[in-house]
Design a protein around this nucleic acid. Sequence first.
DNA 1: GTCTATATCGTGATAGAC
DNA 2: GTCTATCACGATATAGAC
Lengths: 218, 218
Amino acid sequence: MATTFPETTRIVPGAAKAAKPQMRTAERRTAILEAATAVFGARGYNSGSLVEIAEQVGMTHAGILHHFGSKEQLLLAVLAHRDEADLERLDEHQSPVGAAYLDHLVHTAQYSAERVAIIKTYAVLSAESVTGNHPAQEFFRDRFAGMRSRVATDLGLAVGADADDPRVVTAASAIVAATDGLQVQWLLDPVHVDMPSTVQLVIDAIVENLRRTVDAQQ
Amino acid sequence: MATTFPETTRIVPGAAKAAKPQMRTAERRTAILEAATAVFGARGYNSGSLVEIAEQVGMTHAGILHHFGSKEQLLLAVLAHRDEADLERLDEHQSPVGAAYLDHLVHTAQYSAERVAIIKTYAVLSAESVTGNHPAQEFFRDRFAGMRSRVATDLGLAVGADADDPRVVTAASAIVAATDGLQVQWLLDPVHVDMPSTVQLVIDAIVENLRRTVDAQQ
DNA sequence: GTCTATATCGTGATAGAC
DNA sequence: GTCTATCACGATATAGAC
């Protein structure tokens, strides 16, 4: 009776097990990713430990290694995960372009003030990544290159110049740099540093300056 | 015979030993400090090890602890040592003020390009210092506050405004931030980032912008 | 002043029970 | 899928010989 259709009885619970735990696995993975984001932000990658991450999510460090294989792969997953979340948020705002995107950067600075953990993670990890053969080195090199070109594009639109104009490229690099540098200052001394207004000042100053030199050329 | 004047024989070599080794001790200490600067820059504080520093200077890690007591005190000594060197260099240039100091910042960016190790040390350690109870946290908080006020002073002189004018203070924070943020970008991608010209652009843009708003007020 | 030796701890990772 | 147990390794720091 019970053995009448052994294949089905084996297959059906097997399928159920493959479905259910995989759902829970996905949840578990994101829980781990969030805990890892917090720990890497609070301690850096090198001294942030799997044990501490495991404690936050209520398991042992062996469990984490089961899901991600190694600490290094966990770090890369954390970074990729944050980028996905960012893209989703950008989609919500319907990807502003030109001057609107620059305003968006200021808005991001405000939004970020409420999410210290993520800011801290990126500030700490991006600087740590310049050290000898850090696992996130390529990630951050690509990320900065991407941000520079993104800002250059919208800066070009805003002031009426080519995105590959050297002045525009340099200006884009400067805006990205100021934003990141501010985050470190703000994390160390939130009372004396106001991110949104300072980002605003930098963008205003650079856009004005750029408009003038571009107009003078024509 | 040999014990005729034990006090003198004990005292004289004692005095010689107190003088000579102390000279060598000072040299040894600075050698350790330089090695530590390189290692902390290349690996960060947390994963830079005393053993690696010791190897670079040709001794064991126990010797380093003899000189500095603990790894933490060594770090603070490294930071203090660099600041002394900076002050000396600033004295050589006879402490420029006002617009001249802002030019000096650009010059510093050029000079720094030749000294990757030190730049890296500061970029890595300043970001690492925002992590939970890092030993250098207070050092960097004070350092950033000092740089902001220094830049604000000379910015005020350059554009004819008070150093405590909110716009000047914000602008100073922005210049410091851009400089630091650029260092990380440059360390990751020296080919695509030119520090001196970008610092120059930021300063020019901000000084112009500031002059305009200050003049408009009067 | 520098060494060797050792204590103590924490790390990432693996193996295997359940 | 998560656990316990264990491994191999490297860290800071201390004690004491020389």
